[in-house]
Amino acid sequence: MQQNHDVLEQAIEWYVKHETAPLSLAQKQDFEQWLNEHDSHQQAWQQVTHSQQIFANLPLSSAQSLSTITKANQSRRHVLKSIAALSISSWLTWRYQKELGISAHLADHHAQIGEQLQLTHLTQAQVALNTHSAINLDTNTLWLKYGEAHIVCQVPLAISSPHCHFNAELGDEFILFDDDKQVRFSALNQRFDIVAHGQSYTVDKGHTLIADRNSTRIVETPRHMTSWTKGMLSVSQMPLKQFIAELSRYLHGSIRVAPAAAQLHISGTFSLTDPKQILSQILSTFPELTLNGVPNVWQVINKKP
């Protein structure tokens, strides 16, 4: 038994090597030699190859597969009160934290997807949370856990988010957005000195710092970055792909834009009261667009040929 197991592990190691990069000539020879050493090696190699190739027959995306499994697990858990699905839900927390909003429950204040929350009762600051956002707060620190917040300080505060930190004074007004992909900081009442991704920047009033992993730039604050504080999504000549990326922050599930449709441009002011409505507005404005997929899970916008 142990010997079988060792051979199996060798076969797996070879398989993983093959997948990492094309084998060098020397590695190829080593592999051939190993393979021909014993019948059991060939059997193990076949078993390993087969065990992986079958997944090529799964015509679903990872999002579809996982949402199906999760849905199944949830109903199963319901029936069995089993916790067998716990490990899957932890993976999904990572992958679809937006969908599950689990960590939100650990925060002091949070806004759910599609919700905008005015926090007017706090002594430290007036805070508006945009869709899917959460903050923690103590007497002199405000921690934006994720998402987007419009903040007017009522006392001096240290502001901190996963990729950004700075000090704000009484009366300071700004918007901070932080997620896995991007940090955005809009200075609204005066000039700010901030640190984003470990670098110091000065952002003038009326300007926004946009920092992602590869690049950082400071631009005049685009309308759509502040319009949400008035319950609107306001854009001019925005590429459809970027527009949908903004809009999907307010919706459950993911929406992809096929390359054929990505070049369209959107202008207008849309009410965020019903974000789904915005999507149907766009589709009726551009009859050449189609929407396919599973609502609230994944959808694709394409252009009719």
Binding site: I54, N57, L60, I69, A72, A85, S87, W91, R95
Partner: peptide
């Protein structure tokens, strides 16, 4: 296949699942 995938994922820690 989905059934197999679910069983495989149940056996693995989070990093390996990803």
């Amino acid at each position: 296949l989905l059934e197999q995938l679910a069983q495989v994922l149940e056996k693995l820690p989070q990093r390996e699942q990803q």
